[in-house]
């Protein structure tokens, strides 16, 4: 970041110095709280950082041994697969339901604005709260979902079966994410000129055709951004899984994020936890760069 300062040549206007003064706090913060942890994490992933390291302050350098150990662990495949299923499952349904609701609520009717804003609530609640509520609703013997399911058939072993636990956390996460999709997509819908629909209606286009040929194409830019943001945030979800299942039962809901946490803070294998974290960064930034590419043009013109 000293580059920025170095560039301020004496010939430049006063703005250069002032700009730097205004930016200094944020630059310092980014270096200390983002730059440093990233580097520290890389270093730690190449060390055998154990319980003993805390007392002696020493952690021997082990090269790529932590990565090898992580990749050889049978949990690795489970965690990657779960991360993919969790992310894709959450996003598909969050987006689908969010879009359907956005279209529904874009029609003006009595109370539409109030109802729409009420739907924001799940998104504003602390994730731990939502997780606790769903955990209680999923309870095998006393949960409300199984009480309802018993009326129509067999209860589902939501949190006690290795097949159902992942769907359970995905459902929770969908519930949390729908409002975000709804509001952003609703904003996008509002930006589409009403005259287009009126013209199409005059041409005899039905509701589906209007959606297919007007709404969907014109919503594309917003859609792309919503999906990308969803992806980036869903990959690193931690709170929901921790509260609803804690990664269990039998690791059936362990994702890369929760696994990294378990390695570092439960097993105190900080080196391996860091290694998993770095793998997660690779995935997240991969998607992140895609997102940025979609934003690049807009940003470049705004920042100039």
């Amino acid at each position: 970041m000293t580059l920025t300062a170095g560039r301020v040549s004496p010939g430049r206007r006063r703005t250069g110095y002032a700009g730097f003064a205004f930016l200094a706090p944020v630059l310092l913060y980014v270096v200390v709280f983002f730059g440093y942890p990233l580097v520290a994490n890389l270093v730690m992933s190449a060390q055998d950082y154990t319980v003993r390291s805390f007392y002696t302050g020493q952690a021997p350098f082990v090269g790529l041994a932590n990565y090898a150990a992580v990749l050889a662990n049978p949990l690795f495949t489970t965690a990657v697969l779960n991360t993919v299923l969790f992310t894709v499952g959450s996003i598909v349904f969050q987006f689908g339901i969010g879009l359907a609701l956005a279209v529904f609520f874009s029609g003006r009717f009595l109370g539409s604005a109030t109802l729409r804003s009420l739907l924001l609530l799940p998104w504003l609640l602390p994730l731990v709260v939502s997780g606790a509520v769903w955990r209680w609703m999923f309870d095998q013997d006393h949960g409300v979902l199984n009480a309802l399911l018993r009326l129509v058939g067999a209860p589902v072993p939501w949190l006690t079966s290795t097949t159902w636990a992942l769907p359970a956390v995905i459902i929770t996460n969908i519930w949390i994410g729908v409002p975000f999709n709804l509001v952003v997509l609703h904003g996008g819908l509002r930006a589409i000129p009403a005259t287009l629909y009126e013209a199409a209606e005059l041409d005899g286009a039905g509701a589906w055709q209007r959606f297919r040929h007007i709404t969907w194409p014109l919503l594309r830019p917003v859609t792309g951004i919503v999906l990308m943001l969803g992806l980036v945030y869903t990959i690193k979800v931690f709170d929901v899984i921790m509260v609803v299942t804690g990664g269990g039962p039998a690791n059936s809901t362990q994702t890369l994020t929760t696994w990294s946490y378990a390695l570092s803070f439960r097993d105190f294998a900080f080196g391996q936890g860091a290694a998993v974290g770095n793998l997660l960064i690779l995935v997240a930034t991969g998607f992140g760069l895609l997102y940025l590419r979609s934003l690049r043009s807009t940003l470049a013109e705004a920042a100039s």
């Binding site: 980036v232 690193k236 570092s264 974290g277 997660l280 940025l292």
Partner: peptide, 29 residues
């Protein structure tokens, strides 16, 4: 203000938002 590198800084801020919290927690701890 006309700051050089403004675009890079904005990009950097967008990028750091992608860093999973668990990574920060690991090293901050």
């Amino acid at each position: 203000l006309k700051v050089r590198g403004a675009t890079s800084i904005v990009f950097a801020l967008l990028i750091v938002q992608m860093i999973p919290g668990i990574v920060m927690a690991n090293s901050l701890y």
